[in-house]
Each structure stands twice: as C-alpha cells, then as structure tokens.
C-alpha cells in the first residue's frame, strides 16, 4: 500500500516535471525571441530619434541645439557602433550579430553609449580647427554628445595621406585618425584629471588591428586632441576606429573604406 502510493506520487511528480520541462524548453525560446525583439525596437527607436534630432538641427543651422533620448541594450559591440559621416549604426547582441542602421542628411560626429541604460543626447552644430603636423585641419558638422558625462563628446575623425577630411582611403596608403575630447558644460576648464581613452581599430572582418590606451593629462583646452596614423593599409572594406572612455563606456568612432587604386 505504501509502495503503491509512493509510485503514484512519483508518477505525478514525473508528469509535472515533464510538463515544466516542455514548457521551459519552448518558453525559453519564446522569451529570448521576445527580449531580442524588445532590444531591436529600443535601438531602432534610439537611432530614429538621433537621426531626426540631427536632421532638425541641420535644418535650423548654426546655434540650434536639440535633445534626444534613447535606450541602449547590453552587449553593444564596438566593432560596428558609430555615428560618423552621415551614418549611425549600432551593433549589439551575441557576437555582435545585429546591426541597426540609418542615415542622416548631413555630416555627424557622434558619441554613443555602449552600456545598458537610458541616455539623454544633445545635438548641436560645431566647428573646430586643429593644427596637426603643419596642416590646418577643420572639423565641421553636427556633434552628437551624451549628456551628464564626465567627458561628454569623443570625436573621432579620419584624414587621408594628404590630411584631407576623407572616408575613402586608397589601398596601400595611410589614414590618420584624430580623437578629440569635448566637455560640454559651463564649469569651465577641469585640470589635473587623468583620463584614459581606449582605442580599438577593427579590420573589415571585425577582428582587432590594434587595441591600446592613451592618457589625457588635463582639460586645458575645450577640445583636446590626439592623432595617430595607420600606415600602408592593405585590407579592403570598412575599417572602424573606436575611442572609448572606459569609466562611462561612451564611444566616439569613425569608419573609413579602403578601396583598390584601380577602381
């Protein structure tokens, strides 16, 4: 009698476990698909609001400033996350397999957050001139910055071998990248702070070409900059130069296309 009730009890438990197992097996897929689609929608909305913010500021001209809000999911992949030229792309998900992309009506120099959360962006037209190796370089366009950050803007730009602002580099030639730091607050200069900026350069196949960290000793200028050159570029396709402020996870990235000299 005792063993019979034990068997009955075990049968009920076994059936229950089978039901729970089956439900979890199908449920997990369903839940992960739902979460993925929620992330895709959140990033799409963020990209859309950034694009429309940039277009509004472009239409209004000098002096215009606007705000945009957006949510960022986890697992953002730096190898394809940038707001540069007239393009905004967010790459995220396992192994960076989802790209959410759109384009703007004008040149942008964008800073994008890579850590999960909700962010406020500010968008404004700006112009800077930098002297680099005797060349007078002009950075002019719509800046897209993340508000309430220690460093609010990381601006990455690409110049060709003759120091022209260019995103198409001929195979075998050099590309110079310039990373500028901008703090958009009314507090004035901030001195004596050692900031680390991590720079990663990606080949067109998403593997890392170089990964190193630079230190900016202070904010004596509103637009502190750093320049370096990638020499004799061979791999054709789209390269990404991504500068990140590790403390907050904001990224200023730029891309350039390497093309064959015979095309």
């Amino acid at each position: 009698m005792k063993s019979q009730s034990a068997i009955e009890f075990m049968t009920i438990i076994a059936i229950g476990l089978i039901l729970i197992g089956t439900a979890s097996f199908f449920g997990t897929d369903y839940i992960s698909a739902y979460l993925r689609s929620a992330d895709v929608n959140a990033v799409r909305q963020t990209v859309n609001s950034l694009v429309s913010g940039v277009n509004i500021v472009y239409a209004q001209g000098r002096g215009a400033v606007t705000e945009a809000y957006g949510s960022i999911p986890e697992k953002v992949d730096r190898s394809g996350t940038y707001a540069y030229d007239n393009q905004i792309n967010y790459r995220f998900g396992e192994n960076g397999k989802i790209d959410i992309y759109d384009n703007t009506k004008t040149n942008i120099f964008g800073t994008l957050p890579t850590r999960q959360g909700r962010y406020r962006f500010f968008i404004f037209p700006q112009e800077f001139e930098i002297i680099e190796k005797g060349h007078d370089l002009k950075i002019d366009g719509i800046f897209l910055c993340v508000e309430d950050m220690d460093i609010s803007c990381i601006v990455t730009t690409i110049f060709d071998k003759d120091y022209n602002f260019e995103n198409e580099i001929v195979k075998g030639e050099n590309a110079t990248y310039i990373i500028g730091l901008l703090k958009k607050t009314d507090e004035g200069e901030i001195e004596g702070i050692v900031h680390e900026i991590n720079i990663q350069i990606y080949y067109p196949n998403k593997t890392i070409h170089s990964d190193y960290t630079i230190h900016t000793e202070s904010f004596h200028e509103s637009f502190l900059h750093y320049a370096n050159t990638i020499e004799n570029i061979q791999e054709e396709g789209v390269w990404i130069v991504s500068a990140m402020y590790p403390e907050t996870g904001i990224v200023g990235a730029a891309y350039f296309k390497v093309k064959s000299p015979f095309v």
Binding site: V40, G80, N89, K97, I98, D99, I100, Y101, P204, N205, K206, G237, V238, Y255, K257
Partner: peptide, 13 residues
Amino acid sequence: REINATEESINIY
C-alpha cells in the same frame, strides 16, 4: 553588406 552585417540584421532592416 559592406560592414559585414549578418543576414539577420538585413532582415531586421
């Protein structure tokens, strides 16, 4: 396609 986006990304677009 140029930035090697996956087929899934193109489908999402």
